[in-house]
């Protein structure tokens, strides 16, 4: 496929504009001085100030961050274990059910996942709060982690692990010293994915949260239900900024890591010859 015609250029420009213009407009209007969101009344950072003074938002942000950090970390551990089981262990009782339970949450509508977890929490009499949101988020994000990690596990050479075992490693040592460094990029992407999914989730958190714990998406949702709000524009701009910053840093770091790896391989090849 190598033909860049005028039509291709137009559809590419149109497609990317469609993806980015709405967010750009949101960012521009977050600096609008007017309370009427659609009337431009000059540049101002007023809404950012109001946002920082709004303690309800700060509290919600703190809850969201806490839930995200805890749930993505547990989900990464459980998801990596699940990926290992799917790829490396042979047959065991109930294997089909297990892989079904890994893939089903990926396509399950959020309203159903949320409803079923809430009914469970009420059924066993668990008080709803941060703990229940963490449990809910861990459950669905561990499935995403295990998909990401298992694709990396399938593509790597098992003889490296066997060599480590032959040379006297315990299974745990061979995992820690050989397997983990190789699958580390996938584990890190899995963690990042789980973390973003947790920060982003509105529906499941709404079901799992109690009256005392509100996450940021829940706060945003109840604020914008009735219309556009300038404070939410400011908050969105901050969140978009953090993601953009994170992605730039991450791609720079991974580019440097790839370059270093290539250099090392080249050096090794030279040393051999």
């Amino acid at each position: 496929m190598r033909r860049m015609s005028g039509f291709n250029l137009v559809s590419l420009t149109f497609g990317l504009a469609f993806l980015y213009l709405p967010m750009l407009i949101l960012v521009i209007y977050s600096f609008n001085a007017s309370k009427l969101v659609t009337v431009w009344a000059g540049f101002s950072t007023r809404w950012y100030g109001e946002l920082l003074r709004n303690e309800a938002f700060l509290d919600a942000a703190l809850v969201t961050l806490k839930v995200g950090l805890i749930s993505s970390t547990i989900a990464t551990v459980l998801g990596t274990m699940a990926a290992w089981i799917l790829v490396r262990t042979g047959r065991f009782f109930g294997r089909t059910l297990f892989s079904g339970m890994i893939y089903a949450p990926l396509v399950m509508p959020e309203v159903i996942t949320g409803l079923s977890l809430l009914l469970l929490f009420i059924g066993i009499g668990l008080d709803r709060g941060i703990l229940t949101i963490v449990l809910a988020h861990t459950t669905f994000s561990m499935c995403y982690v295990s998909v990401v990690v298992s694709s990396r596990l399938t593509s790597f050479d098992t003889s490296l692990e066997e060599a480590a075992l032959d040379l006297g490693c315990t299974p745990w040592q061979s995992f820690r010293l050989v397997t983990l460094p190789i699958i580390a990029p996938a584990v890190i992407s899995g963690w990042l994915l789980a973390f973003t999914l947790s920060l982003d989730d509105l529906v499941i958190a709404s079901f799992a949260a109690g009256p005392s714990s509100t996450t940021l998406p829940m706060k945003i949702f109840s604020a914008v239900r009735l219309g556009v709000s300038p404070e939410i524009n400011a908050l969105s701009t901050i969140m978009i900024g953090i993601v953009a910053f994170g992605v730039v840093i991450f791609s720079l770091v991974s580019k440097r890591a790839t370059a270093r790896q290539l250099q090392e391989e080249r050096d090794a090849a030279r040393a051999e010859s």
Binding site: Y20, L26, V247
Partner: peptide, 26 residues
Amino acid sequence: LVILPFWTSFLIRVYSWMGILSQNGV
């Protein structure tokens, strides 16, 4: 560039259209 929007909040991406499509919107 195509994947990047996926990392930004789903809720915010939906919300961004409220200011564009409303009666006196952009």
